[in-house]
Amino acid sequence: MNLVGTGRTADVWALDDARVLRRYRDGRSAEPEAELLRHLHAHGFPVPPMHLVDGPEMTLGRVGGPTMLHALSTGGLDLHTAARIVLDLHALLHAVPPRGPGEAILHMDLHPDNVLLGPDGPVLIDWCNAIEGPPGLDLAMTAVILGQVAVDGPFAEGAAAFARPFIAASPSLLPHLDNALAHRAADPHQSAAELAALPRAADFIRAAAG
């Protein structure tokens, strides 16, 4: 197997041209995520097809195409189109009926590195943080993630240019911003630098929202 992706909690290995294996490093069961993917797929939301679950491992259909982040970095996608795709994915996701009493299904980690630009359109991956709640919280979390990059690091200028039209088009995120910041601050996988950037990210978001 070839390692084709690694995140904060899981690694992704290519099994062949059609399948990948996603494995949680902490050994947790992949079944809750698999159940959510089945539900989303049944309602027409673009997720990778799910084939098999075995403990912390999940076999998924391989999506041909780059991440949105890669396409942005190479000039294959412009910032405003990318921001529109992210907004559209939020809207489509929040229209899927929730499985529990929550208002909507929230991804809570929807950013350009979790969007694959497949041959049939964008596909959203990495659902380990998904919860149910108000759609504005999901939008606010995306704004926080973008805002952290926009105020710190070598990709700040591009992240800011991406984030501003997204934030301006998402006024419903502002009432949920403090909650999103608290969620992000409580994430044990955040680095010290990422945590330190949160207050400046909040200021950036409020300024971008006007």
Rank of each mutant, 00 (worst) to 15 (best):
32 P>L: 09
140 A>K: 11
90 H>E: 07
180 A>D: 09
45 F>W: 04
30 A>L: 00
115 V>C: 08
18 A>P: 08
128 C>P: 05
46 P>G: 03
163 A>L: 03
108 M>K: 04
126 D>S: 13
152 D>I: 11
63 V>L: 07
131 I>G: 02
45 F>C: 06
33 E>H: 05
110 L>N: 04
11 D>G: 13
195 L>D: 03
67 T>N: 12
49 P>L: 00
105 I>M: 06
85 I>Q: 04
143 A>F: 14
149 V>K: 02
77 L>P: 01
8 R>Q: 12
6 T>F: 11
92 L>D: 13
178 D>K: 13
210 G>A: 13
164 R>F: 03
159 A>G: 13
63 V>E: 02
184 R>E: 01
152 D>A: 15
170 S>R: 04
95 A>Y: 09
202 A>N: 05
205 I>A: 10
191 S>Q: 04
3 L>Y: 09
41 H>T: 04
49 P>K: 01
26 D>E: 08
17 D>S: 12
172 S>L: 05
153 G>W: 05
162 F>N: 00
108 M>C: 14
90 H>K: 09
101 P>Q: 06
146 L>D: 06
10 A>Y: 08
21 L>T: 15
78 D>A: 15
189 H>R: 11
114 N>I: 01
23 R>L: 10
153 G>R: 06
96 V>G: 15
30 A>Q: 00
80 H>Q: 01
99 R>T: 15
66 P>M: 01
176 H>G: 11
31 E>W: 00
195 L>E: 03
59 T>F: 09
155 F>S: 12
86 V>R: 11
117 L>H: 03
5 G>I: 06
119 P>T: 15
72 L>A: 12
125 I>Q: 02
112 P>I: 00
146 L>G: 14
76 G>E: 07
168 A>G: 13
164 R>C: 02
162 F>L: 09
47 V>E: 04
125 I>T: 14
164 R>Y: 02
191 S>M: 05
37 L>D: 00
21 L>R: 14
33 E>Q: 08
64 G>W: 09
96 V>A: 15
100 G>C: 10
137 L>A: 12
129 N>E: 09
190 Q>V: 11
46 P>M: 00
18 A>M: 11
128 C>D: 10
59 T>L: 09
18 A>Y: 12
112 P>M: 02
103 E>F: 07
12 V>H: 06
186 A>F: 01
100 G>R: 08
146 L>E: 07
121 G>P: 08
195 L>C: 13
184 R>L: 04
200 R>D: 13
49 P>H: 04
58 M>S: 08
108 M>F: 11
62 R>M: 08
149 V>T: 13
203 D>S: 03
162 F>I: 01
85 I>L: 07
26 D>H: 12
205 I>S: 10
9 T>W: 10
68 M>C: 02
166 F>H: 04
51 H>K: 03
8 R>F: 10
21 L>F: 12
139 L>C: 09
113 D>H: 09
171 P>I: 01
115 V>S: 11
4 V>K: 03
54 D>C: 06
182 A>D: 12
186 A>N: 01
201 A>T: 15
101 P>G: 14
116 L>Y: 07
152 D>Q: 15
148 Q>F: 02
